[in-house]
Design a protein around this nucleic acid. Sequence first.
DNA 1: GTAGAATTGTGAATAACATCACTAACATCA
DNA 2: TGATGTTAGTGATGTTATTCACAATTCTAC
Lengths: 214, 214
Amino acid sequence: MKIPRPTVKRLGLYYRCLSNYREDGVDFVSSQDIAEKLNIKPSQVRKDLSYFGEFGKRGLGYDVKKLLNEIAHIIGVNKEWNVAIVGAGNLGSALTSYPGLSKHKFRVVALFDNNQQKIGKKVSGITVYDISDLERTVNELKIEIGVIAVPEFAAQHVAELLEKSGIKGIVNFAPVRLRTNVPVEDVDITLSFETIAYNVVKKSSLDLLDTSND
Amino acid sequence: MKIPRPTVKRLGLYYRCLSNYREDGVDFVSSQDIAEKLNIKPSQVRKDLSYFGEFGKRGLGYDVKKLLNEIAHIIGVNKEWNVAIVGAGNLGSALTSYPGLSKHKFRVVALFDNNQQKIGKKVSGITVYDISDLERTVNELKIEIGVIAVPEFAAQHVAELLEKSGIKGIVNFAPVRLRTNVPVEDVDITLSFETIAYNVVKKSSLDLLDTSND
DNA sequence: GTAGAATTGTGAATAACATCACTAACATCA
DNA sequence: TGATGTTAGTGATGTTATTCACAATTCTAC
């Protein structure tokens, strides 16, 4: 069956939400509980989950641990993923020690750069390799996910290197649309600032002009 | 008029795309040119722009500089935005020197933290203030956008402080849904990794099983 | 064990968004 | 100058995503 893209995005949210419930020692939750936390409709939660199976008990809700396990399987975080970050600059370094990744089964095992000054050094305990060693290292360390944390002009080139090295998926922090055959997920920081700027401007013009017609 | 959310997101993409064209000395572009770069349909580009006015010339296309200027006005980057980053950890520090921001009219003018060791020091030339000075500094430096780069557990609290300090919009890097009255834009790094994991798993199961029924 | 309350799962209805297909406008060149 | 080619703008149409509304199931209390 075809799964709506927004549904896939929300699975991650459910996963985190349920993790929190489990940490709090909660055993059962309703679609309404989840929906309130995430600021969406309960019917959305139920519909999303229903694409993958019947995980709940009518009258009772969802068994937190069981559902967590199901979602982990669906989004593939029931196993560890080895991650390589290309670009050992500020952003790449920050990601290397980002707690959100290690906490959720994403293990950064290598950094890559083309700056000879950086190569061989360690960042948060992770070795910086020469970008020309990409293919060999990806194979040796069984790396499946690549992260692009290089400047815009180098991003497409790096994407092609990653693809050629046999990587399975890319998380791209550079502000370009990559052309590849492997799945790409864009994290567009600048775009988020521009979006918030738009919303701030819009909100203040609405606040001024209550008799709005725009 | 009500502008579709996806359209707003794409405005930022158009803006960047046109900036590149301008840097390359291109004077006129067609909706098709833009669409190819961004991997979308030309009709999408035209429809999006049409929400805001008639910026093109039939038979010729769009004047790059003129359209750039129009979009800059629409998304509000015709002026500089002062930005404060809360959380002077790895991520906050990386954002402080992120070139994509300064390049596009977002100026980081202050960092905030609650760690006494960091307060008073500078990161990439930007002073780290005590979080308790937030309200005063936001007013003094005319800060309009706040960035949340603190751990999950502190995010909601920081959001409330930011709101109280009079900030107009928030870019949130913590993996929580914030409850505020100011516009929030989430940059959910972990979620992107989970999404890519899902897509990798899906793709490899499809590759294996060509006679798929899922 | 039965009534009543809670909650899921899901077809149907609605809403949001993307694309098509056509007209109007402009440019170029013979 | 008229014929031809290009491209924007836009109502109509198609597609995707969300929400509703209700039957089916389970729990709780007495």
